[in-house]
């Protein structure tokens, strides 16, 4: 029963588990596949923790070394992806934090001045009904990607993990060592700011 509970909590149906099994016996191709799948995604997250892209690249390379050396410690309690990201986040945090930036967006949701004293819209959102006609999904996604560096780091980390990587809130709280409330506030602000940035391009004209 204990084994079943352990497996059920994370690794069932995880396509990466086979790759880790192959990696354990030194399979180069399995390593290359794992790198192909996750290297740039880890780099995207690492960049939000450390001062430069070059440092982020070092952190990701260091993470792969940690994966290979620590592979016997993977127990299937989480998905392989979550395990990789946990190693990455721990190393990125230990490497040294960035200077705070985009502090103007730390609080609020980008909607200052959009409501009257009674809390009703004075400048309501303009309909995006024309989005599909003018832009395909790939193009909108490209614009979201351009918004990421403009977000404060903590908001960017939560948005990447939740909405881009598809992690659930409990995983994100655990990875970033933040409370559920803080996670939700950061997610709310990040999504709100990205919506405002998209609105500037999509809502007009």
């Amino acid at each position: 029963m204990e084994i079943a509970a352990d497996v059920a909590s994370g690794a069932v149906g995880d396509p990466d588990v086979e790759l880790l099994d192959a990696l354990r016996v030194g399979d180069d191709a399995a390593f290359a596949t794992l790198v192909g799948r996750y290297h740039m995604r880890m780099l995207r997250l690492a960049e939000s923790f450390v001062p430069t892209r070059a440092v982020a690249e070092e952190v990701v390379q260091d993470t792969w070394l940690g994966v290979v050396k620590g592979i016997h410690r993977f127990e299937g309690r989480s998905s392989v992806k979550t395990w990789l990201f946990r190693i990455l986040v721990n190393r990125a945090k230990a490497t040294g934090m960035r200077e705070p930036r985009n502090a103007a967006l730390d609080a609020g949701d980008g909607l200052d001045g959009r409501f009257d004293a009674g809390g009703h819209w004075t400048e309501p959102p303009e309909p995006w009904t024309s989005i599909d006609a003018r832009l395909d999904a790939t193009e909108i996604a490209r614009r979201v990607k351009e918004c990421l560096p403009k977000l404060p780091d903590a908001q960017r980390q939560v948005l990447i993990l939740r909405d881009i990587e598809g992690a659930d809130s409990a995983e994100v709280c655990d990875l970033l060592k933040i409370s559920a409330t803080n996670q939700r506030v950061l997610l709310h602000r990040a999504r709100s700011h990205v919506r405002v940035m998209l609105e500037l391009e999509l809502g007009r004209g």
Binding site: M40, T138, I140, A141, R143, V144, L159, I164, R191, V194
Partner: peptide, 15 residues
């Protein structure tokens, strides 16, 4: 629009 924003984020590919 919030839902559209979330859906668009889900389509963001890594470099």
């Amino acid at each position: 629009q919030m839902r559209a924003t979330i859906a668009a984020a889900g389509q963001v590919d890594p470099d």
